[in-house]
Design a protein around this nucleic acid. Structure first.
Length: 105
DNA sequence: GGAAATATATGAT
DNA sequence: ATCATATATTTCC
């Protein structure tokens, strides 16, 4: 486990319910450019479900990935979970993404 | 120890 | 919109 992972989980846990964050925001807050690394870390998610990995989305408002695959039916499940928390998703993008997006800086 | 793969982002074409 | 490059971690050899 790397220091980057610790900080990633810490920040992710700080995201309130009904809000989402992006890999980019996380990477920026952590001071790294390894966006993909964040994806790997979140995918590992040894702290689940204490760490809401489903609250992490791509910077363009798309869901990104979930459960081992990047784009597939698993996304539907993630969408349902987000909708359950108040973040509704229409089609392939989050509804009012910038408003629901939680930024650290 | 080194190479390939990944739940991304950005820039160029 | 599509293709190629950059970046950090993990997994497999």
């Amino acid at each position: 486990m790397t220091v980057l992972a610790e900080k990633t989980y810490t920040l992710l846990a700080k995201v309130p319910r009904g809000r989402v964050t992006t890999y980019k925001e996380l990477a920026m807050a952590l001071g790294t450019r390894g966006y993909r690394a964040i994806g790997q870390i979140v995918r590992n998610n040894p702290y689940a479900p204490r760490v809401p990995c489903h609250r992490v989305v791509a910077s363009d408002g798309t869901i990104g990935g979930f459960m081992g695959h990047s784009r597939g039916e698993a996304i539907q499940k993630k969408i349902a979970m987000l909708a359950s928390e108040g973040v509704h998703v229409t089609g392939k993008r989050i509804n009012e993404f910038p408003k629901k997006l939680f930024h650290f800086t």
